[in-house]
Simulated scan of single mutants.
Amino acid sequence: MLVRRLVALYVGLWLYGLSMAVMIRAGLGLDPWDVFHQGVAAHVPISFGAATAVTGVVVLLAWIPLRQRPGVGTVSNVVVIGVSVDVGLWMLPAWDSIPLRVTAMTAAVVVNAVATVLYIGAGMGPGPRDGLMTGLVARTGWSVRSVRTGIEMSVLATGWMLGGSVGIATLVYAFGIGPLIQMMIPYADRFLPGFRVDRASEPAVVVAAP
């Protein structure tokens, strides 16, 4: 079971970074956090993957007052996704065809959902951004929906002001990722029994059963 969890973790993290690279190459907008990463990378002489990793480290520092504890998956999230997205950007060309870009964007959102289910469902520690959300929920008593929305809107607005790409893909991701994750959980359960959705808080939040 441990081997399957590790495979799920690292395949999920690698696919997550790859899906980010595809979304960037599609050029139709990014999810809120990637809008922020792209905005940062536009102003600092580092790659997109490095901006992702550095942001992850900074967010981890915010865990300290929240008394959150990182796991193997947390540290791996920072490293593997940063490397994967840079490799993906190096391998993938830019596309000019609108139908091809729309297809790539759609595929990226679907792959991102698969990746999310795999790495969170592995149950080896949340990513820095997910842990920030759950820590704030625990400390404030606010709903997951309110905290998640507040974080996402804040980083989206900041990233947009820094020059990050906002477009149709941003809306597709925002409204599509939750339902896709929820739909994929039963299939992932065949590989990692014990997946469930925390229905008491937010349908789009995937957690691993103890």
Rank of each mutant, 00 (worst) to 15 (best):
Q182E: 11
G123D: 05
L9R: 09
A94K: 09
V22W: 12
S97R: 11
A174G: 14
G164L: 05
V75N: 02
A108S: 08
V40E: 05
Y10N: 07
I64D: 08
S201L: 11
A209H: 14
G12C: 06
V83T: 09
V172N: 09
L171Q: 05
A41D: 02
G123W: 09
T170W: 09
L9K: 10
I120A: 00
V137R: 04
M184I: 06
R145G: 07
I181K: 02
G39T: 11
V3W: 04
R129V: 08
D96W: 13
R196V: 15
V197D: 15
I24M: 12
I64T: 13
V83K: 04
V102F: 06
A104L: 07
T52E: 14
M133P: 01
V72Y: 04
P186R: 08
P99K: 15
V87T: 11
D189K: 08
S19T: 07
W142S: 11
W95L: 06
G127M: 05
T116F: 07
G135S: 12
A138K: 12
G17F: 05
G163C: 10
L28P: 00
F175H: 01
D198S: 10
M20P: 01
I151H: 13
V59R: 02
V83F: 08
F175T: 10
L2F: 15
G29W: 00
G167I: 03
L89I: 13
G178Y: 03
L15M: 09
T140P: 00
T116H: 05
R25N: 01
P179R: 06
T74D: 03
P179H: 13
R25P: 00
G29C: 01
P93I: 13
P193R: 09
G194C: 11
L30R: 03
V166A: 02
V35N: 04
S84F: 01
R196Q: 15
A21F: 05
I181G: 02
R199T: 12
V166M: 02
V78T: 07
A53L: 02
A209M: 08
V7Q: 04
F191G: 00
V40H: 03
N77D: 10
A53S: 11
R145H: 10
L100W: 07
N112P: 04
D86I: 02
G150T: 15
I177T: 04
Y10F: 13
S76C: 03
P179Q: 08
V72M: 06
F191N: 04
N112T: 12
L92I: 03
A50E: 08
A107E: 09
F195R: 10
V166N: 06
L156V: 04
L9A: 07
R129Y: 13
H43Y: 14
L162W: 10
V44S: 15
P32F: 05
P203V: 15
G127W: 11
V110M: 13
R196C: 15
P32R: 02
G56Y: 00
R4P: 01
R199Y: 15
A62W: 09
V58C: 08
V40F: 10
V85E: 03
G29F: 02
A8F: 01
T149L: 11
G131N: 02
G27M: 00
G17W: 03
V109M: 12
P179A: 13
L9V: 05
G163A: 03
A51Q: 10
V205P: 00
Q38M: 04
